[in-house]
Design a protein around this nucleic acid. Sequence first.
DNA 1: CCCATAATGTGAATAATATCACATTGTTAA
DNA 2: TTAACAATGTGATATTATTCACATTATGGG
Lengths: 210, 210
Amino acid sequence: MKFAKIPMATINRLSIYMRTLQDLLEEEMDVISSERLAKQCGVNPAQIRKDLAYFGEFGVRGVGYRVSDLINQIKEILGLNRNWNLAMVGLGNLGSAMIRHGNFIKHGYIFTSAFDVDPQKVGKRLPNGLIINHVDELEEIVKEREAHIGIIATPASAAQSVANQLVLGGINGILNFAPVQIQVPDCCHVENVDFTIKLDCIAYHLSSGG
Amino acid sequence: MKFAKIPMATINRLSIYMRTLQDLLEEEMDVISSERLAKQCGVNPAQIRKDLAYFGEFGVRGVGYRVSDLINQIKEILGLNRNWNLAMVGLGNLGSAMIRHGNFIKHGYIFTSAFDVDPQKVGKRLPNGLIINHVDELEEIVKEREAHIGIIATPASAAQSVANQLVLGGINGILNFAPVQIQVPDCCHVENVDFTIKLDCIAYHLSSGG
DNA sequence: CCCATAATGTGAATAATATCACATTGTTAA
DNA sequence: TTAACAATGTGATATTATTCACATTATGGG
Ligand SMILES: NC(=O)c1ccc[n+]([C@@H]2O[C@H](COP(=O)([O-])OP(=O)(O)OC[C@H]3O[C@@H](n4cnc5c(N)ncnc54)[C@H](O)[C@@H]3O)[C@@H](O)[C@H]2O)c1
Ligand SMILES: NC(=O)c1ccc[n+]([C@@H]2O[C@H](COP(=O)([O-])OP(=O)(O)OC[C@H]3O[C@@H](n4cnc5c(N)ncnc54)[C@H](O)[C@@H]3O)[C@@H](O)[C@H]2O)c1
């Protein structure tokens, strides 16, 4: 099963399973069935088993999954048994909110650099101790601090240019909050987050009696 | 075509098309082909035509789509030719960042109430003029201010209880930022936003040579 | 030791989604 | 007027994802 092509949706769900399993671990639950986990994650039990089957056999028939083992297996699959260094670009409302947020570090995501163009912001120290650098220094600093993932939290108009600089800095993964489609070489993986799309989706459902 | 079941994915894409079309309008482009629009949105041209075909015929054969017309059509489809009132619950990092963000109002999303439990925050005035109310008053105030959509930006532990209160307040659409699956009656539509999942997804791609 | 039980892992069936390919139809210019 | 063109709208096809259904296999009690 190891080298089938893995559906994107599976990867997303693994992340959800892991989060739920971590909650379960805190509640001292040490074994769980796909049925109960599925209910808690809002998916079909067979889905969970299928998703896991892409990567191996992690359960015990007649019993279920050992919670802490499964967490470790999923971490291994997703590549989360290590830390990832993040470069934040754009320290406005959203960028600042994320840097202040404590949960990323818990999951092994560490902000090691931060960039803006605003001269008012460049040179300031953030709550986590980081100093904001000018975006012109991005390529250099990103290499120096071994950033793995870039986060674009600038206005849409700057997003493509920031993406270009991140790529030059050797970054192969980008989380983009700007509401535009950015163009990058194939070696670079982009994930987009756009809240407004989600709101539009809710509006649609409210409008058409869904 | 009007009453086929519409794929969720189609609704999401319509929102993206609209955003791109609005950019094109600013660049004074008044007609666009599905091919060019598709490139800009990163999808297949036939996809765009199929998505639109669920709702009618909006193009001109041999020519393409009139940009401003198509924007209006999509707004009509998604229910965006009106305003939607938002209730923000949890004025921490993320909730505050969203309220400060100017783009929501441009798209017809208006914050009409804001709630927290923290006595330090309750009573404070936000940059947009709103006063933060105590979450105990949620049900009442949400009804009074005719909120349509609730946004949950509290810690995960409070999310379900907030969701319950929103539903009691008559709200049928929820945007949930807390990393838990909330349970609501069928009449209520929930969309989840979880950045950490997106980061995990990038980590996976970086790890497995994608 | 063996049987009843419970829950996994998975092939087959189904459902959902995306793409192709082309007939159709407005447009423009000779 | 009409022919050449361009891009839509859509049935057919291909691909991808989800769910079903059950054979398989650990476990624990009698
Ligand atoms: N805040 C939200 O709730 C929200 C919601 C949806 C989408 N977004 C999107 O997220 C992005 C950020 O939103 P925000 O509210 O934080 O915006 P913001 O205006 O508060 O912050 C943008 C920051 O980027 C900086 N910047 C501009 N150009 C830059 C460049 N070339 N290099 C580096 N930094 C640059 C600005 O100086 C500013 O500090 C925007 O694209 C926005 O559309 C935000
Ligand atoms: N900020 C981020 O970058 C980020 C990223 C990913 C996920 N999230 C999620 O978004 C949510 C909010 O994140 P944050 O960083 O803004 O957290 P935060 O701790 O800064 O803010 C949470 C706010 O909710 C309030 N609150 C707590 N219980 C409440 C209740 N019952 N009713 C109303 N208000 C209540 C708190 O007083 C606080 O003001 C969390 O669930 C978090 O996991 C945030």
